[in-house]
Amino acid sequence: MPKLGWRREFGTIALLAVVVIAVVGRDHRFLDPTSLNSVLLWIPLLLVVGVGEMLVIVTRGIDVSVGSILGFSGIVVGMALRSNPGMNVELAALLGLGIGLALGAVNGALVAWARVPPIIATLGTLSAFRGLVFIVSHGVQVDSNTIPPALTDWSMSGPVQIGGATISWLLLIALVVAALAAAVLRSTRFGRNVFAIGSNPAAAKLRGISLPRTLMAVYCACGALSGLAGVLYASRYGFVNPGTAGLGFELTVIAAVVIGGVNVFGGSGSVLGVFLGCLLLSVINVALAVLGISATWQTLAYGVVILLALVLDGAVQRVLRRATEAR
């Protein structure tokens, strides 16, 4: 099994290499620090939410409300910063985390206790939470002059410089979140329970794992991370618009997770894979810009990438199943 995990991530790495070589072959500007920096700035939001989404997908669920949670947390934290100019930005990040946790708990309650199928529950809350964004903000944007520089600095500067490319605080936060998640999944009972539920819910139940409690925790975690991403969004873009913040982000996140080799039938996946999926999507995104391909192609590119990853995943699963049956 560990060998298999290694092989899946190897596939993502190979794909990444192919894309990078193809793009650099067309235009070497892709290796300039400016492009590298934009790749590095693309990753944090995607990785933070991607880790949460991965947890959900491993348990055979899906959460399409992440973009709305991001938007809600972003707008509420933005409004808090607007009315309290002196507010500590670390406190703002915690506030975002807490707001996301609360909204994630709503999803969790629906899925774990009311037994609403995840796609229906989160499709409903996708709209409901977006509605909340408008109710709270009255449709008014949080402008860039009210976001404190201390917060926007997270995405402008960072402790490490590698050959002109900056590892921003934003990226560092995301990497810490990812490392923590990887550690929890690998070494705690909760982590093993998540995988057990995804591989075989009935067996997990028989082994005494509480399905509702674990699912609740998973949706809460996904919500909390989406909430944190709302604050990172405010840092990265410097403003929060109720209509656009996080709109359609679920698609990008699910694409990253699926490309990262997280099994869409549940039960397997790794944080490293999700990181590689995020990296690949960021590279594709910046590559589109460097190659001068219009942004109108973006949605199509994501869709194709998700479908390809699904089809490949399905094919790999079938081959593996046949191999185990033959043995």
Partner: peptide, 26 residues
């Protein structure tokens, strides 16, 4: 795609949701 490849219709149609919208945009 759903019936031949035995993939979840949620994920397949999530992908084609993006693809069809993307083709319309292009």
């Amino acid at each position: 795609v759903v019936s031949k490849l035995r993939l979840s219709s949620v994920l397949v149609t999530l992908a084609t949701m993006a693809i069809y919208r993307g083709v319309a945009e292009v």
